[in-house]
Structures are given as C-alpha cells and as structure tokens.
C-alpha cells in the first residue's frame, strides 16, 4: 500500500479544497490528552511556517522582472486579453483562476470534498452529497 503525502494531491483540481482546509483537520480540532494520535510523519511539510513573501534574491529578481513587464499606464484590472500583458501566463495568474473558480462556491464550499466524495461513489446522487451511504468511497484509493 502506498502512502501518498496529502500535499502531492493538493494542486490537482478538485482536491485543492482538501489542501486548503487540511491544516484545520490536522492542526486544529479537539485534542484529548488521554487519547493517542497517529503519527503524521510524511505530511509534516504541511506545517508551513514560511513568511508570505519570502525575502530572497529569487523573489527580488522575480518582482523586478514582473515590474518591468507591467504596463504602468493601465489600471490594475486591465483587460487580460490585451497582448502586452499576456506575454506569459504567470503562475499567479493560473492560481488566480483556480481560486476564483473555487471561491465562487463560497456558500456550500467544501465543494472539493463533495466532489471527492462523489468521485468515490460514481454517479449516484451527485446533487445530494448528504445522502451518502456507507459504501461510498470505494474507488478513491485507486487515486492514492
């Protein structure tokens, strides 16, 4: 049985929701001294303590490049279809898109969870995630 560190699945489409709340599941919630906790070896990298913008030469150069490419005359929300802005699809641009798509579902989110659960049980009742049955996640492990 292979143990896939959870963060490796984090970037892929529907599972990014799990990645976003994984620190809640792993690091918050009730802890009771009398109980033992399973080892979390293998996913400790998730306990990220890096500052948000890491001050490094790489960051400096990246920002300098980004500024050089920036169209200073345009507003911040310039139409992304205009050619001089889209010389390359930046990482942040791609990330922005997926976040936008995700955040649209603010009300019921954990969309990714529901999707993941739906994945696990095939086509049955995709619109009613709460009506799941006990045999639901049968196929998920193939992805792990």
């Amino acid at each position: 049985m292979t143990v896939v560190p959870a963060q490796q699945t984090g970037g892929a489409g529907g599972t990014s929701g799990l990645y976003d709340v994984i620190e809640l599941i792993l690091d918050r919630g009730l802890v009771i001294d009398a109980f033992v906790r399973v080892s979390l070896v293998g996913i400790e990298i998730l306990k990220i303590d890096v500052r948000v913008v890491v001050a490094s030469v790489d960051t400096y150069l990246r920002f300098a490049e980004a500024c050089n490419r920036l169209d200073l005359e345009a507003g911040p929300r310039k139409d992304p279809g205009l050619p001089d802005l889209v010389g390359e699809v930046t990482e942040s641009g791609a990330r922005g898109k997926s976040k936008g798509a995700l955040s649209g579902a603010a009300e019921t989110i954990s969309d990714a969870f529901k999707q993941a659960r739906d994945d696990g049980r095939g086509e049955e009742e995709p619109a009613r995630p709460r009506a799941r049955r006990s045999s639901s996640r049968s196929r998920k492990e193939e992805q792990e």
């Binding site: 709340v21 792993l26 919630g29 009730l30 109980f35 954990s110 969870f113 659960r117 799941r132 996640r137």
Partner: peptide
C-alpha cells in the same frame, strides 16, 4: 482525511459537534 471530514460534516449538519483533530 476526507472520511474524517465527511463524518463530521454529516454530523454537524444535524446539530453541534466538537470535531476531534484528525487521528485521535
């Protein structure tokens, strides 16, 4: 992790639940 979350989600829909940290 998903199972832990799903069970709590299901229980939480019907009333208050104190979620345990995963792995207790």
């Amino acid at each position: 992790l998903l199972a832990h979350q799903s069970v709590l989600d299901e229980a939480g829909a019907g009333g208050a639940v104190l979620p345990m940290r995963f792995g207790s």
